[in-house]
Amino acid sequence: MHEYALMQALMDRVGEEAAARRALAVHRIVVRIGDLSGVEADLLESAFEIVRAGTMCEGAALEIERVPATWVCSGCGQPVPSGGRLQCGGCGFPARLAAGGEILLGRIELEVP
């Protein structure tokens, strides 16, 4: 379960930012997770429950925005449907993942003095 390691990296980054701003608490953490990122939202939430104990994020809400996979042709840019062969029906070029691979930290809400 790499979600735990991922959450640890997330907490480190949030902790850095909170320290730099002398924050008193973290209220909200927004992340964007692509459906083809290899990260499970449920497991990320479970990991958050474990790692936040005793930290500034103890009372924070974790908001996970899911990003559906979107493939487009690497040649002509036309959409290529998921589920089928990942090749453009028009020009035969391989598809490129335009969205859905994200493992991103978005916005955080801090309580600052």
Binding site: R107, I108, P113
Partner: peptide, 18 residues
């Protein structure tokens, strides 16, 4: 210094940046 207040910070980055 004023009362504590909430700020929203856009960190916009890879979680696995390190």
């Amino acid at each position: 210094c004023g009362d504590p207040h909430r700020v929203s910070v856009d960190l916009r980055g890879e979680i696995l940046a390190a």
